[in-house]
Write a protein that binds this DNA or RNA. Structure first.
Length: 427
DNA sequence: TTGATGACCAGCGATTTCTT
DNA sequence: AAGAAATCGCTGGTCATCAA
């Protein structure tokens, strides 16, 4: 397979959830007046759980929003409108907004299921921006040893064993900086098989902190404690930017990368996670390829570029026996991997999902389909292993961080913990 | 006018400390 | 022990600024 040609850069978009398009179009069905559309949009944003964060948490109801919240919602609203105009989903005529045929057909695709909907959007976005192609190309070029894998390690002082109370002077900051750089060098070598000294960059970072007046050039003098968060944020941003631009040659800034990969994740063409077990930070890899053509039945074409290359999503069928066996193998391996650090038979299903998705290079959606199929067979006793799935607590029922990930819907119910028995004797 | 960029901050959930 | 309050760490979204 010849690698495809890198496309022109992607512009920045300002919202993550692809449902926003649908929510806007639905609002437009009811009104053509902008202020009224916004009112409906606000309610629907709430109804579809389009929270401020990716974890879809909503606090207040749409009736009791603060001025500031309304301002934020309006900001998002304007962005959704402007992007919808670009894709001709709506048109704007004399202060009135109307759905176009294209908009109506996108709504139709939503009713056929989320996968159909996101794929229609993928076509619209790719026609205009080629952003997914650009990122997928970058991902495949990320590392010679491990093509496709991109890591963005992240370690706060806390995670490296420093307590906030022991970081007071320039000297302390330098100690953290040094340990962080060492850790990052390690990650580069383990994950990307690249040995590289980060000492130079580390010095650059420290120098910029001094230059901006956040810390003093003198080792023993204390920095102002209310700048602590700002200083730590500098570390985070600096290394993220370094990894993206220097290691992965991504030419745009972090937010742009975040937004496009998260959109790609919803379509199922790129996987990205902050919850990969035993790793601090973010891991991104493609669950698709861009090639002229392929004979493999595991890949489905979803978009064709002008130069003849196509975007194929990796979507193996669960009911083909070889696929099923491979899935079960990885499932069992990942289960025992996680069991080593866990006393209970039950382990976190999202964590297991991360390991299996990575091994098979499949999206969360495909994982869900496989697990569904395998679980049903297990219930009727037609499987060589025994699987138990349970619901611990759903994200909205708890404040625990480890449950911030979306649970997996299997056999019609949300599940978040799993146990596996290979002997079939019962657990 | 539009997009890129970096700084900033509200607010969330985790963690720690205080209180009963 | 358990709940309440205070503090901490971090993120997404907003905004000002700059360049084209």
């Amino acid at each position: 397979m010849k690698e495809s040609q890198t496309q022109k850069p992607s512009a920045v978009r300002k919202f993550y959830h692809l449902e926003y398009f649908y929510v806007l179009l639905k609002s437009l069905e009811k009104s053509s007046d902008k202020d009224q559309i916004f009112e409906i949009f606000k309610d629907l944003k709430q109804e579809y759980r389009l929270g401020e964060s990716k974890y879809r948490k909503l606090t207040s109801d749409s009736q009791n929003l603060s001025e500031r919240q309304i301002q934020k919602y309006r900001y998002t609203f304007e962005k959704v409108i402007s992007e919808s105009l670009e894709y001709d989903l709506i048109n704007h005529d004399g202060g009135k907004y109307q759905l176009t045929d294209k908009g109506r057909s996108l709504m139709e695709s939503y009713n056929q299921g989320f996968q159909t909907y996101t794929r229609s959007l993928c076509v619209l976005m790719e026609e205009k921006y080629n952003a997914f192609r650009y990122i997928i190309d970058r991902l495949y070029k990320s590392s010679r040893e491990n093509p496709g894998l991109l890591i963005l390690p992240l370690y706060s002082p806390l995670q490296l064993g420093f307590d906030k109370s022991e970081i007071k002077t320039t000297k302390d900051i330098k100690r953290y900086a040094e340990r962080l750089a060492k850790k990052l060098e390690q990650d580069l070598s383990t994950f990307l098989k690249e040995s590289r000294s980060l000492a130079l960059e580390n010095n650059k970072l420290l120098a910029s902190l001094v230059e901006e007046g956040l810390i003093s050039a003198d080792d023993s003098s204390e920095f102002s404690q209310n700048k602590y968060i700002a200083i730590i944020a500098k570390f985070r941003d600096f290394w993220r930017k370094f990894f993206l631009q220097e290691i992965y040659l991504y030419e745009y800034y972090y937010t742009s990368f975040e937004i496009w990969t998260y959109r790609a994740k919803q379509i199922g063409i790129i996987h990205s996670t902050e919850f990969y077990p035993h790793f601090n930070g973010k891991i991104v890899y493609p669950t698709s390829v861009i090639v002229r053509n392929t004979d493999s039945k595991d890949f489905k074409k979803i978009y064709t570029y002008k130069d003849g290359y196509s975007l194929y999503i990796h979507e193996p069928e669960p009911d083909i026996e070889a696929n099923e066996n491979l899935f079960i193998d990885y499932l069992v391996n990942a289960y025992f991997d996680l069991r080593r650090t866990n006393r209970s038979y039950f382990i976190s299903l999202p964590a297991l999902r991360e390991l299996v998705c990575y091994k098979l290079k499949i999206s969360e959606y495909v994982f869900k389909q496989f697990l569904d199929s395998v679980y049903l067979k297990n219930l009727t006793g037609n499987l060589k292993i025994k699987i138990s799935l349970e619901v611990d607590r759903l994200p909205e029922e708890t404040k625990a961080m480890y449950l911030k990930q979306e649970p997996v819907m299997v056999d019609g119910r949300y599940r978040n913990i799993i146990a596996i028995d290979v002997s079939r004797g019962g657990i």
